[in-house]
Design a binder for these strands. Sequence first.
DNA 1: CTAAAATATGAATGATTACTCATATTTTAA
DNA 2: TTAAAATATGAGTAATCATTCATATTTTAG
Lengths: 204, 204
Amino acid sequence: MTPKLDSTPRKQPKQDRSQATVEAILMAAAHILTELGLDSFTTNRVAERAGVSIGSLYQYFPNKKALLFALAQQDAEKMQQLAQEHLTNVEHLTIAQVVQQIVRAAIAAHSANPRLHQVLHEQISRDQVMPAAAESQVENLLRSFLEQRRDQLKPENLDLTVFMVSRTIESLIQRAILDRTPWLESGELEAEITRLISGYLVKS
Amino acid sequence: MTPKLDSTPRKQPKQDRSQATVEAILMAAAHILTELGLDSFTTNRVAERAGVSIGSLYQYFPNKKALLFALAQQDAEKMQQLAQEHLTNVEHLTIAQVVQQIVRAAIAAHSANPRLHQVLHEQISRDQVMPAAAESQVENLLRSFLEQRRDQLKPENLDLTVFMVSRTIESLIQRAILDRTPWLESGELEAEITRLISGYLVKS
DNA sequence: CTAAAATATGAATGATTACTCATATTTTAA
DNA sequence: TTAAAATATGAGTAATCATTCATATTTTAG
């Protein structure tokens, strides 16, 4: 008897019609979150933007939180996928080169929809119910890479290292994007983060 | 005719009595924000906790945002003060030693009331009206230190360097505190951040 | 002592919003 | 063809909350 979470989908859409409804709702939700912000994110507004009655929304999402949950899942999947792509066939590269790959991938991932990503992130840290899966998945990729190169690494504590690296990259990029710094476009940021992390990781 | 901000205090408390009221309100506000979170942060609840009528609250704060504004100002002052204390009489130290001082100060600053600090931080990035003064003040201290040691530094772009250093330290500490990692207590975090930043800054 | 100024009160207002439910329409499958 | 299942509708409900205002109490100053 697994107690179902509040945010469990209310019912599975079976027909094409309802599938389209769910997609429209999710798109509208993302749009309102990014364009109008969390304060304007009301279930009625989402339904309206989706061109769907408020009742229909509640057919598939038992409450507002479930909507955010669903968006977070989508976001996590995209992140995970991007990380995968950039972290395969990497055996022949130096650590510094791989770090550059990672930084580049992270910039790409965050550039896609930074505001949505940020809002979801804040909700995750507020709500225990949300999937921190997004990070932990990506962090697992990082961890396995670091394990493979363990002999070339300066830090001893692998968990701490994963924390330092992932958190540093994530926050620098996130902030740079939201602040619209020029260092993103110019490539300076990528270079500096790469140097910061490489110097920290590699045995001198 | 400077258009007054919404968050301008409604009236200045002149008597001791009203001074006490304002302080009680601010204390209650901080308490509710940290203990119950932003969702439970209602003006009526703050007034109740302060032992004051809702009307009195609105005598001194024209709206809810003004309350957050006032808290943010208090917080900024404390941060600024702590940074000052830890960054004086530093001329005879190496860069690595100073970085350690900074990291230690930052840990102390954030440990004081991490949740309050985080909530205010999030509001600042959401609202344009809020004082980003907190960071910029501390960043100025950092900038002037880096300027003094410019010849020993590897990075060329000072603004970018300030961004990298302040943002990295801030986010690593914030996250470590909120995640309750054991690396804080053990001192490992302080050592690792210091190494990360020092390696990045100092000419090899 | 007294009137004006400062301060405090809290019920009431109006607006917002998450969510429900009774009913209507559409699709499926037999 | 038809009944059941799936899907859609949106006015309505109840709760919450920021803010106001008319009134009451306290303090100050002359």
